[in-house]
Amino acid sequence: MSHKNSVLFKAALLVPVIQEARQHGCNIALVKDDGLYMLSEKGPINPATRRRLVAYAEGFDPSLVVFDEWYHPLHDICGGDDFVETLEADSPLFDRVVNNSVNLRVEFTASSFLVTPVIPDKPKEEQT
């Protein structure tokens, strides 16, 4: 399966977002604007960033990647328009992220998206 129209969210970054959403009894938003990220719909706002705790898709965090290196690839993956999609925080998919450190792949088509679990590769020292 090709992953050219997809992004990866790492469990280590997602778990705090999922826990925050569950703590506040709200959903998780998948947002494309300045990068691509997930965040809880409710929760405290960080005064420095003026936003809630976020989990950026790998390679699409504008604080770590120069604009031209994330903007054009992201445009190719999921289009030019900004968007917000709502995901239920109590989804069994998010249980797998929290309980088993499973990453999430979000694959985009012209009219929809699909979120699937991705089991991370074991570190080389564990593969003996």
Rank of each mutant, 00 (worst) to 15 (best):
Arg22Val: 07
Thr116Gln: 05
Val106Lys: 04
Ala57Met: 06
Ala48Tyr: 15
Arg52Cys: 07
Leu13Val: 03
Asp61Ala: 02
Val7Asn: 01
Ser63Lys: 15
Pro47Tyr: 11
Glu20Cys: 09
Pro117Met: 07
Leu13Ala: 13
Asp34Pro: 02
Glu88Val: 04
Asp76Ile: 00
Glu107Ala: 15
Pro120Lys: 01
Met38Tyr: 08
Asp95Thr: 13
Pro47Ile: 13
Asn5Leu: 06
Ala21Phe: 04
Pro16Phe: 05
Lys10Arg: 14
Val102Gln: 12
Asp68Asn: 11
Cys78Glu: 09
Leu13His: 14
Leu30Arg: 12
Ser111Phe: 10
Ser101Arg: 15
Leu87Val: 05
Phe83Asp: 07
Leu93Ile: 13
Val65Gly: 07
Asp95Val: 07
Val97Phe: 01
Lys32Asn: 03
Asn5Gly: 08
Gly43Cys: 06
Leu93Val: 14
Val31Met: 01
Tyr37Ala: 02
Asp82Thr: 03
Phe67Ile: 03
Ser63Phe: 04
Ser6Leu: 09
Val15Asp: 06
Ala57Arg: 06
Asn99Leu: 14
Phe67His: 09
Lys4Val: 01
Glu69Ile: 00
Asp76Gly: 13
Thr49Lys: 13
Trp70Asp: 01
Asp82Ile: 01
Leu93Met: 15
Pro62Thr: 04
Leu64Thr: 01
Gly79Met: 06
Gln19Ala: 10
Pro73Arg: 05
Val31Trp: 03
Phe83Gln: 08
Leu14Arg: 10
Thr116Phe: 00
Glu69His: 12
His75Asn: 15
Ala55Asp: 08
Leu74Gln: 11
Trp70Leu: 03
Val97Asn: 00
Gln127Lys: 06
Val115Ile: 15
Gly79Tyr: 04
His72Lys: 08
Ala89Lys: 07
Leu87Tyr: 08
Gly43Lys: 05
Val17Pro: 10
Cys26Lys: 04
Gln127Trp: 02
Ser2Cys: 03
Asn103Ala: 11
Leu30Asp: 11
Asp90His: 12
Leu13Ile: 02
Glu88Cys: 00
Glu85Gly: 00
Glu58Tyr: 08
Thr49Met: 04
Phe113His: 15
Asp68Val: 14
Leu64Cys: 02
Asn5Pro: 05
Val84Asp: 03
Arg96His: 03
Ala48Glu: 14
Arg96Cys: 07
Glu126Leu: 14
Arg51Tyr: 06
